[in-house]
Write a protein that binds this DNA or RNA. Structure first.
Lengths: 234, 234
DNA sequence: AAAATAGTTGAATTTGAATTCAAAATCAAT
DNA sequence: ATTGATTTTGAATTCAAATTCAACTATTTT
């Protein structure tokens, strides 16, 4: 077989409903194993065992662990990714609500499937294409703001790429904290015992402050209402 | 051998100067391979080849790849980690300079050895103890600020752990951006072509804004001076 | 109900890399 | 120069896990 064809034959689809069910069973099992063990510890035997089928069956449907994982995690990453859906209840011009809505979605993902979120990072680190796909998504989530920045702050007269850098730096506010809280389960941080809503609120408030140099309106705040008083003294 | 002893026998030290040199040679080679290939692609053969010795010699000095890597990366992580050293030129009370000094150190690390920085994350993801050590360091870099927060903003009357969460969220400002810029080498971001100083300045300005709800003094700024005008309109 | 097609099994094989180890080389001390 | 300890070699071995495949079962078609 030419290398050309070999690349295409990644994965074979099922040819019947029964087969389709088996294939889905393996994907579901993979998700369980990924959540529990992470990508690097996962073995083909783990997946087939979890699915309750023989090892050989794996190869009937997937080329190798990586292509299965790629498929499972791509599905996962795409699932909660539609900006229109995310912002459906947000009134035009309400920046706080808009940012909050985005943050809440991602905090929920971390809270619900920390192991899988970790696997996204693991696989992105292994696979160039997957990394590119994730980062492209991430970038798309940010570009609306990047493009708005010059209109939003005309006085600032951003230099080329400056708005981009600023937005990326803001986006980082959440990532690190969520990893530490949900994935690493830092003792010190977990002691705070935040709900996902409180968590999202905190991130949003900090984001808002760095972006606008203002606090969000107090009436929109609960958990972080007191942060309004966090202003440089003298 | 008892499991107790087995655990201690991780790694054998060299018993002569010559041996010590060979051992260091392997560590040095490992650093090269880590920077180039990353932890997961590294093989014992790669290290010995890079060091120009036979495969077997590896086991004379190290138990396995993981313990070698642990040693190499622990050295690396500890090297640039002394807060006193970092803040040596900072005048008391100059918050901007203080934060900038910290940021500059880490931006430099990323710029100089992006591959190794990536490996820190890879190994932390594999090894609980190493992860704990890194996170402990990270935490120590932040705790001075956490502890100062209630005095700095008495009006805010932080709830338990709130200051901690806030500081962690601030710390995230840099991490994500540095990964995207130096490790993933994002095309769009690299187009900005920032110097390490500009990079550190950007992070510091954003950090400062979110923390104090104020811009740093304009005279301290270069690359981000125009960001002073980034304030919510209306 | 026979034939054809698709799905499934699990033992046997292959693979790629870690690990061992007997023998050779080097070195420091006497 | 000889001895004994240490370092170094690299071919042989082991090992865990991936991969193959011939035989078997289930389902659908004719």
């Amino acid at each position: 077989m030419s290398p050309e064809l070999a690349r295409k034959a990644k994965t074979s689809r099922a040819r019947s409903a029964r087969g389709e069910r088996a294939r889905e069973g393996l994907k579901q099992a993979a998700l369980v194993v990924l959540e529990r063990d992470g990508y690097h510890k996962m073995r083909i035997a783990d997946v087939t065992q979890e699915a309750g089928v023989a090892q050989g069956l794996f190869y009937h449907y997937f080329k190798d662990l990586k292509s299965l994982t790629l498929e499972v995690l791509t599905d996962f990453a795409m699932a909660s990714n539609d900006p229109l859906q995310i912002e459906k209840d947000v009134s035009r011009g309400d920046w706080y609500a808009r940012i909050y809505a985005h943050n809440l979605v991602i905090v929920r993902s971390y809270a619900k499937r920390p192991g899988v979120m970790r696997c996204l990072l693991q696989l992105a680190d292994e696979d160039e294409a997957f990394s590119g796909m994730l980062r492209e998504n991430y970038r798309n989530q940010l570009m609306w703001l990047v493009e708005l920045m010059p209109k939003l702050f005309p006085k600032a007269r951003f230099r080329k790429h400056q708005a981009l850098m600023v937005v990326y730096s803001l986006a980082g506010i959440g990532e690190g904290l969520m990893r530490e809280y949900f994935i690493n389960e830092s003792k010190t941080l977990r002691a705070a015992r935040l709900t996902v809503e409180q968590f999202a609120e905190l991130l949003t408030t900090m984001f808002y402050r760095a972006l606008f140099l203002q606090n969000p309106e107090e009436k929109q705040l609960e958990y972080t209402r007191n942060l309004t008083a966090m202003v440089k003294p003298n």
